[in-house]
Amino acid sequence: MSQDGKSGPRPCLLCGSPNEPSVEHIIPQALWKRFGLDPDHDELARFRTDLCITHNQATSVLHQRTEMMDLIETGSPVTKKTLQHLGDWIVWITLLLSLARGRGVLGVEASRQLLLRRFDKLHAGTPKGVRVYAALVDDSVEPTESETTPFVLALKGDSRVLLDEKGAPIGFSVREGPINASESIRLGRVVLLVVGSTYSSGDDHEQRIDQAVARVGLQRIFPPEKALPKMEPTPIDMTDVSQLFTVIPDGADNSLMPEALRAFATWDDPGGIVH
């Protein structure tokens, strides 16, 4: 039975091949077992998908990092190596999860092409422009309630961002699209946030993204800082993390949008276009 509950195998999520079907545990079975969970439980079905044997074996290499798994389970060791592995791992995991559900920080086809490039052509390395943030979770302290205003981002690859002939943003469509501004997840002692590649809002754009994320308790681990970040257990509100960034401008802080989109923003445009 395929992972959507229908009888019979589905084609490989990456290449579309119907041959040699297999179940891929996007979050590795070994990690679920560390938490005392059954990897095949129905409640974890959203973390499984269908891959051919070739791609299943290729993606499984991502999970063969014992110290990184220790960090997720226990909160240590925090080293440049484990944070580097964690940042790389969660980006590819996010792309697989996004592709499986048809929505993510890079869109379906962009995610598929990057995954095929990574696992077929062995082009390692995190996709350009993607940023990853992390925090260790302290469950002994309840996070304080906050009313975080989301920041709207203009993501590269989002068809809602209208471009001129030089590729510069000039407008925005409010129609639905397959892009999320960010993806967040908690696993064990770690909270992770992946932010897609964005069009610049001006000077210090990336630094201001980092500052926005710091407000909800996370620190950047990719691109890596020169100094090892101090990862100490922190009370984290996952709602704040998951709602920090959006691609829908209504009710959001637009200071991280390109100036052209902020300056001419008229959200009540009857055609649904900002220009």
Results as ranks from 00 to 15, higher is better:
23 V>M: 06
202 G>Q: 06
21 P>L: 07
35 F>H: 02
268 D>A: 09
213 V>T: 02
50 D>A: 08
138 D>K: 00
71 L>K: 08
267 W>P: 06
173 S>A: 13
196 G>N: 09
89 W>M: 10
242 S>C: 07
250 D>G: 02
228 L>V: 07
220 R>P: 05
255 S>G: 02
144 T>M: 09
200 S>N: 11
273 I>Y: 04
230 K>I: 10
216 V>Y: 03
25 H>V: 07
69 M>F: 09
162 L>R: 13
68 M>E: 06
160 R>A: 09
225 E>K: 08
170 I>S: 02
87 G>D: 01
231 M>H: 09
160 R>D: 01
173 S>V: 02
157 G>S: 06
72 I>N: 03
161 V>E: 02
92 W>E: 06
129 G>I: 10
12 C>N: 05
263 A>Y: 00
140 S>R: 14
59 T>L: 03
138 D>S: 05
133 Y>E: 03
17 S>D: 06
165 E>R: 14
98 S>D: 15
227 A>T: 12
126 T>G: 00
216 V>P: 01
46 R>Q: 11
182 S>P: 04
129 G>M: 10
78 V>R: 12
55 H>R: 11
61 V>Y: 13
78 V>G: 12
248 I>H: 12
166 K>S: 14
50 D>L: 00
2 S>V: 01
18 P>A: 05
146 S>T: 15
41 H>A: 15
125 G>R: 04
70 D>K: 07
145 E>T: 06
85 H>K: 08
166 K>H: 11
85 H>P: 00
83 L>A: 07
232 E>F: 09
113 Q>Y: 11
93 I>H: 14
111 S>E: 13
141 V>K: 14
210 D>C: 13
17 S>Y: 01
100 A>H: 12
73 E>N: 09
125 G>M: 09
225 E>W: 00
